[in-house]
């Protein structure tokens, strides 16, 4: 039951995030979607390492208080959280510039302008 909830929650976040990226047109909203999707992936990864009855992987004076949960996925999630933040920051910097340049953050409008500008550079 707990597992179904956690896996369901994680996959749910991934799908909600993907929806915001695929179906919404505002670039800022797409970035929100990215953040939600990354959260879902992190939850999935952390859930994989859980053991019922396991303790947090921190020893007390060098000895384990009992069976531990798997520490590796936790290390991976930590890494993934920080990576996600770096990418988010770069995305927001680009958003500031795109908004300045085109006055809009509508993904389709931006794509159209982009194609037009690539074309102009050509001729």
């Amino acid at each position: 039951m707990t597992g179904t909830l956690l896996y369901g929650g994680a996959i749910g976040l991934v799908i909600i995030g993907l929806y915001a990226i695929v179906a919404r047109r505002h670039l800022m909203r797409n970035i929100f979607g990215l953040a939600v999707m990354e959260s879902g992936v992190n939850l999935l990864l952390a859930s994989v390492g859980y053991r019922p009855g396991g303790h947090a992987p921190i020893l007390v004076a060098g000895a384990a208080p009992g069976p531990l949960v798997d520490p590796i996925p936790q290390a991976l999630v930590l890494t993934a959280i920080v990576i996600g933040f770096g990418v988010l920051a770069l995305a927001l910097a680009l958003v500031v510039r795109v908004r300045q340049a085109y006055g809009t953050l509508d993904n389709r409008a931006v794509a159209r302008r982009l194609r037009a500008e690539n074309g102009e550079a050509r001729s």
Binding site: L43, L78, I81, V82, F85
Partner: peptide, 20 residues
Amino acid sequence: LSFLFALLRAPDVALAEAAV
């Protein structure tokens, strides 16, 4: 999410998720 990480016995991750 941070609360869920704490429930999953991942205090390091919970702290990082809350802060970052």
